[in-house]
Amino acid sequence: MTSSVVTLFVCGDVMLGRGVDQILAHPGDPVLRETCVADARAYVRMAESVNGPIPAPVPPSWLWGEALRLLDVATPDVGIVNLETSITRSDAFAPGKAVHYRMHPANVPALTVARPDVCVLANNHVLDFGRAGLAETLDTLERSGLRVAGAGRSADEAYRPAAVPVRTGGHVLVLALGASSSGIPSGWAATAARSGVAHIPDLSATTAAAVVERIRRMKRAGDIVVVSVHWGSNWGYPVPCEQIRFAHALVDGGADLVHGHSSHHPRPIEVYRQRLVLHGCGDFIDDYEGISGYEEYRDDLRLAYFVTVAADTGRFLDLRMVPLRSRRMRLEPVPHQDATWMHATLDRVSATVHPVLEPDGTLLLEPSRQRPPPRSLRSEDPADGAL
């Protein structure tokens, strides 16, 4: 690899609370306030019922498993994860929410072991234990030397991009946003006098223009801008037209990568104006094993995304996606048939790109393998279909 490129590792939701927290060395209070589950250890038992015993307590590296080897081999310049967990000992369950995630602060090595450069916090779980829980989360991450984006003690902090210097001389700037469509309550929005998340109420042209103005103020020559957005529903492959247009507006305004997350499985990929748009990266780490109901989406399969861009322009060069499988709350290599399934699925749902399945099971996407955009994506008709 030459100094003229920058490689980014990105993934979807990293949920280290609830059952995951219970198998680590310092489990917090297992009490839950869910309709059907009152004890977080029940999620451990569900995982064990389908894939066998988990040797708790596990070391911090257990959760990441094969992903740590991939990171060691790829040596990305910058790693970005969506941390969908509060890190707190608080018992102040946010009212009106059906699900709450928290990890005990003493278990933070389960995050730092993967050496992420930026933890995105603009999501619908970071305030599950109120603003005191958010403060403890921010303090814990700061003490651990981890940068955050998308939440803060004020709006200025929440909307401030995380800046990661890279060897090419510029910075990777990560601006994180949380959309109402992902279930983030409007009351969680940070203000000048109140902590919270970098909240966007909708995906309108007006909201996009405000984000673009931030990009233009912060971007300098040699910088690469990643806009990380928590948006959309949990299940399904179609991408709403307003989301597509919002992503395109971000790219038109200077974003070099749109890193979308919230869905429990990978969603379509597109390349727009030589920039990569990941509409949904899917879950990466969680305690969802043994939960039935959406088997057709294969949410046991996860993707590690390695994106290479030109250092001087941010132009998309290639994307390598490595399928992994979650078993016993650990990421492991997948059988070839699972990589084939993931390839066929992404190829089917991504209207404008054509990933290639490599012999080692990696999915490779290069700009030369784009398809012409369908008519609906070339039109401005608001009735157009989605990806």
Rank of each mutant, 00 (worst) to 15 (best):
I269Y: 08
N107M: 08
P240S: 14
I215V: 12
D286Y: 12
V20K: 01
A255Y: 04
V44K: 01
G28V: 14
Q243M: 14
S204Q: 13
T168K: 00
I285Y: 10
P76F: 05
V120G: 10
A74H: 13
R160G: 01
G314M: 05
P161A: 14
Y43W: 11
S90F: 08
V37L: 09
M1H: 13
H261F: 15
M218L: 06
G79A: 15
V309E: 02
G169F: 08
T191I: 10
D156E: 15
H261I: 02
P105H: 05
S195Q: 04
P55A: 14
R369Q: 13
V197G: 11
M103G: 06
M342W: 02
A255H: 07
A386V: 03
E84T: 10
L141C: 07
V31P: 00
R371Y: 12
V6M: 08
L121K: 08
S233A: 10
T313G: 06
G253K: 07
A189C: 03
W188Q: 10
L141G: 03
P266F: 12
G187Q: 04
R214S: 08
F9R: 01
L134F: 09
P53F: 00
S144C: 15
E66P: 00
A205F: 09
T35Q: 12
G314L: 06
P373K: 13
I224T: 14
A162L: 06
V10N: 01
L365I: 06
V211C: 07
G150M: 12
V197D: 06
H104T: 04
A110Q: 08
H199E: 02
H125E: 03
I200R: 12
R330K: 14
E332G: 00
T191D: 09
D287T: 02
V258K: 00
M103F: 11
A179V: 03
P268A: 09
L301H: 06
G260I: 07
W188R: 09
R33W: 12
P266G: 02
V108I: 15
G96M: 04
S180I: 00
V349Y: 07
G222S: 08
L127D: 03
S186N: 05
H343M: 13
V349G: 07
G19S: 11
A106T: 00
K97W: 00
E136P: 00
P201C: 07
N51Y: 03
L250K: 08
M15W: 01
R115K: 15
T191G: 15
S3L: 15
L363A: 13
T112P: 05
H100P: 05
I200D: 11
W231M: 11
A132E: 13
P116W: 03
H100Y: 09
F306W: 05
G222W: 13
D72R: 14
V10K: 00
H199F: 15
A106G: 10
S186Q: 14
Y159E: 12
G145K: 09
R89K: 14
P55D: 10
G17L: 12
T308I: 02
A122G: 02
R371C: 07
T191F: 07
P53M: 01
Y294E: 11
A25F: 04
A193F: 08
S350Y: 08
L83C: 13
V108W: 05
V307Q: 05
A189S: 11
V239Q: 06
V126T: 15
A190R: 07
S3E: 13
L111Y: 06
Y272D: 11
A155K: 03
V58L: 04
V227S: 11
P76V: 05
